[in-house]
Design a protein around this nucleic acid. Sequence first.
DNA 1: CGCTCTATTGATAAACCTCAAATACAGTGG
DNA 2: CCACTGTATTTGAGGTTTATCAATAGAGCG
Lengths: 232, 232
Amino acid sequence: MDEGLPLQAPLEAENVFRGLTDDQLARAARSGKRIRIPLKSTLFRQGDPARRCYLVTRGRVKLSKLSETGKEAILRFLGPGQMAAAVAALTDTRYPATAEAVEPTEVVGWDKRTFLRLMHDHPPIAFNLLRVTLERLDEIQQRYLELSSEVVERRIARTLLRLMRHAGSRTRSGVLITIPLSRQSIADYSGTTLYTVSRTLTAWGKIGWVRSGRERVTVTDPHALVLFAEQR
Amino acid sequence: MDEGLPLQAPLEAENVFRGLTDDQLARAARSGKRIRIPLKSTLFRQGDPARRCYLVTRGRVKLSKLSETGKEAILRFLGPGQMAAAVAALTDTRYPATAEAVEPTEVVGWDKRTFLRLMHDHPPIAFNLLRVTLERLDEIQQRYLELSSEVVERRIARTLLRLMRHAGSRTRSGVLITIPLSRQSIADYSGTTLYTVSRTLTAWGKIGWVRSGRERVTVTDPHALVLFAEQR
DNA sequence: CGCTCTATTGATAAACCTCAAATACAGTGG
DNA sequence: CCACTGTATTTGAGGTTTATCAATAGAGCG
């Protein structure tokens, strides 16, 4: 199967360790604990005491929040270079979300004390982390606005475009989203149901905007999808 | 009219300058520019180049995001001690939201260079700001989940409870929300329409949960509202 | 080849928005 | 003090969107 070429730089923008020398970086990495997360198991669970924060080094995790009624909202997917649960280092709290591996994943985990020392010794880390957090804050605020103001098909379009930019891979037939992505996942990301997603993807398949299969979506006409998502 | 006693501590938790001596704090304040914002005018507008970040010192501003179709989503209200547009100090960007005074307001504004120096000279500022940003991130993520999973009346209940905690004042008859709050504002905060808010408040008025008038809401039975908001 | 998980599709219903019109309220100036 | 004006609010009727439920089909795996 043609997996194509990665579309985006390896998430440089979210690199919290930018500004450190290779030596400092290596030492920082050694100060944490290397952990392997098998497919579909959780790195941490919403509500558990937050003891560690993590940096994803390989693979990909799904960060999501669950309601008491069992509904799931996907906040984002995190790939290599991205941090999770930074809040664990700053406050004495519980994990506000759940992180589950959607690919075989490797992370480095630091306990509160260690990561605080790291930030203390290397001020760029704190600044980078602040910048990344502000970016994520704005992104979810934007999605919050969309959820309250856009109709469902538009939200699905924006979801596919986001995932495409985040984890897209150019192939012969379009841009493949390289995350195992069920209709349910797309629904949890877009704030709708799997039925609506299914109907929508079927319709878009017919007009050639996407090709979709079991847990796979390829955006075959990104331009059309952008126009549809942005139209007033 | 009985304005009652403020319900919450003056937003200590969000104080970005915690950990500085009075002297350091006074100097930090002097390094910024004191600005007066009249009622209903904007501190900054979504899309404008982000040159300054601000600390609210008096009054209250509404932070909101606008869609191209004219819909408004209220992100939060900011009172004394709370920062706005910190992103201006960290990245070269445009304001991601609009801040409008809902009371006569005073702020201190710092340009990028000055605030960066401030953070550099006083590491606690960066840490506090990071903590505050992470808290806000989780709050909006929680609201994002609610918007995608809760029915509208429950969201309205949660909105009133949030505003009550944030800007509530205990009075003879209940907890008055001390922000001028139209049905439209409540709708923009809850992700619904003013009509639905109006009907809901009328119903809750009849069963004694709230008392509402022109741009005023008093929660007369907080306990009932909590039960309603949290029930499974 | 059967089992399990995922996806499709149709029918139905519920939730909520939209529009229109009437009413209440607060402030202003005579 | 009162009429006037501009908002804010209420309320009803009707329609749209989207969720829900049920049943079937398809894909991948051992």
